[in-house]
């Protein structure tokens, strides 16, 4: 179990980085394809990306702590 905890840490770091990349690409694509819905409006995207970046950093940090065996009991 301790090994699973440790190596899953890498998965969380990768997921954190991937989620930011996907979010930014999706934002650019949806803002570019203009329309009346919220998903085509840049304001929600700016708010979401701004608030999500520190969360993604936190997720990567969680992965780092897991990899460093900080969650071993």
């Amino acid at each position: 179990m301790q090994k699973i905890k440790k190596y899953l840490g890498i998965v969380w770091i990768i997921l954190a980085i991937l989620s930011v990349i996907i979010l930014i690409i999706t934002a650019i694509e949806n803002i570019a394809s203009k329309g009346g819905a919220d998903i085509h409006n840049p304001i929600p995207w700016i708010i979401i990306i701004t608030i999500y970046l520190p969360i993604a950093f936190g997720f990567a940090l969680f992965g780092y702590y897991a990899f460093k065996e900080e969650y071993h009991v």
Binding site: W12, I55, G58, F59, L61, F62, Y65, E70, Y71
Partner: peptide, 10 residues
Amino acid sequence: NLKLVLLALF
């Protein structure tokens, strides 16, 4: 404490 905050969230 931070690691517990992160654990509580995720």
